[in-house]
Design a protein around this nucleic acid. Sequence first.
DNA 1: GCAGATGATTCCGC
DNA 2: GCGGAATCATCTGC
Length: 291
Amino acid sequence: VLSIRGIQDEDPPDPQIMRLDNMLLAEGVSGPEKGGGSAAAAAAAAAAGGSPGADGGIEHSDYRAKLAQIRQIYHSELEKYEQACSEFTNHVMNLLREQSRTRPISPKEIERMVAIIHRKFSSIQMQLKQSTCEAVMILRSRFLDARRKRRNFNKQATEVLNEYFYSHLSNPYPSEEAKEELAKKCAITVSQVSNWFGNKRIRYKKNIGKFQEEANLYAVKTAVDAASVSAQASQANSPATPNSGSVVTGRDREVRGARHNWPSVVRVREGLAGRFIAHQRLLWWAGRSAR
DNA sequence: GCAGATGATTCCGC
DNA sequence: GCGGAATCATCTGC
């Protein structure tokens, strides 16, 4: 085990160890105590979009407690390794001293032997550092992953998004401006709007049949809204502008629809069947309202 | 407790 | 950089 073959006298610092050391230092595991890594936790929580709410506080303290536990285990193991290393070094030194009675042993040889022992123990230390880093990573993902803080959007927000989606069914790709407008209306971020449309498009395309009823409902809603806008517009003697909330023009929709390869069947559905269903529903709705 | 719904993330291609 | 697809993790209704 203590072969000295291929060992150089002076090795450059291992970049792997340096990376591990830096990470452990940044997380507050190694180095001076800094509140059990609360700074790192706070930074990570902020990066994950976490707000300092009541439950966030509980999770935060839980995170700190677990991190402190990791820190404690890391230091106690490190101490054990260092102790074992010095004990083993002493043992080998004693053996060499004994051997020096029978054969000449140069100080250089002793020095080399000690270096070999230290190298072996430092590779064990690296394993400890690696597993500690893994533990911290798991802890971080466990506590700070945004997916674990998922909350459903409120009903009004979902309605706004669905209204936009179904009224732009031929090309449900809101522009950046439209996304910002929707985000403002729903009190969510633009990224969340993008996520929502991404998920919606996929899930709609996968199972159009399932979403048909929902599409119909929103088609009716849109038709009723358009009718009411139209009525108001004609009262005010001004031209009606259906879908005036949309930032995307008809031409844009055609071009971008083709680019994104949104299924043409969906476009037909909105164009003919959708309009027919909307018309039927409108009649039904009008009759019901009259009663 | 379970199945389905839903918001977020990741990977990949364009 | 954006969107599609797969997947994860959580929420919700039963």
